[in-house]
Design a protein around this nucleic acid. Structure first.
Ligand code: ZN
Ligand code: ZN
Ligand code: ZN
Ligand code: ZN
Lengths: 152, 152
DNA sequence: CTTTCCAAGCAATATTATATCATACCGGCC
DNA sequence: GGCCGGTATGATATAATATTGCTTGGAAAG
């Protein structure tokens, strides 16, 4: 892991701590550790992949351990679940509830979160035209990322 | 099941038959039966719910039976999977590949598929801005439907 | 008739997620 | 100190979802 990446990770962790403090939520060592695993890998990880990593340092971790931590982190808007992959990624704009939009490359597996207001607005409009009140919007776009399309 | 609903179902089944014929795909009795189960219920059903129903008339059906049928039906664009629910619904515009957009009511559970070009275009645009080539776009909007919001 | 292909049967297993009950810890409070 | 209520975690079991591998049978192609 590069110095740069480590610095970014620390910044994200600090941010997470502030977010939780603001909400009166407890970012316990365990939850912090799980968030750390998600941040350091930088790729979508399934609950059981996280569990395996957690077990290395946290003997006795079991499925509920990881799922509870993930539930907490999702409630605090620190991580997202990618439904198509049953995998979890850090939120790029941690701490705010916002419509989730993901680009999922089916060649290299990279998932990137985008925040496109125009698209979010269009979707909200579409829902309202049906008399529907959106609460939680998820967009998952599978395709080929720029890097894979032009393997320069 | 009402007469009207039955007629609609027959029409959808006929359409499915035409779609498959056009593709040289075999809508076998088993696959047809599974599609029928999905059409007649009109609510999202999980694979195992479908399996239970299938077993009533098709002794010996097992998980692969239903998953294979569902895979086929999805390939033919006759049904969609709702990732958030691990459940399957008929496609309202059967037979065409198209961006999937769903409104999921968290109160009554109703899922309705919409086809909003503006939103689809906005999303495609958003992806292309990142140099991403979308292949398969899924939108799942959870919220409160008109009926539940105004329980007149 | 033989080969080929594909759907379906069948058994086992893998993966993902939750239920339940017990224990530990931390604060306020008497 | 001793108790109490709330929250986080430990521990075990089980539920729910999905896939793999191998076999069989029947129809279509050659
Ligand atoms: Zn986010
Ligand atoms: Zn890629
Ligand atoms: Zn559709
Ligand atoms: Zn509703």
């Amino acid at each position: 892991m590069s110095v740069k990446a480590r610095r970014r990770m620390t910044a994200q962790m600090d941010r997470a701590a502030r977010v939780c403090a603001r909400q009166g939520a407890q970012l316990t060592p365990l939850r912090r550790h799980v968030l750390g695993l998600i941040l350091e890998v930088g790729a979508p990880l399934t609950a059981y992949q996280l569990l395996d990593r957690l077990k290395l340092t946290h003997k006795g971790a079991a499925p509920p351990t990881i799922y509870r931590a993930l539930d907490f982190l999702m409630e605090q808007h620190l991580v997202h679940k990618i439904e198509r992959l049953n995998a979890f990624v850090p939120c790029v704009e941690a701490g705010h509830r916002h419509p989730a939009q993901f680009l999922i490359c089916c060649q290299c597996g990279v998932v990137s979160e985008i925040e496109n207001r125009a698209a979010a607005n269009a979707l909200e409009h579409a829902a309202e035209q049906e008399g529907f009140r959106p609460r939680n919007t998820v967009v998952e776009i599978e395709g080929v990322c720029a890097a894979c399309f032009r393997p320069s």
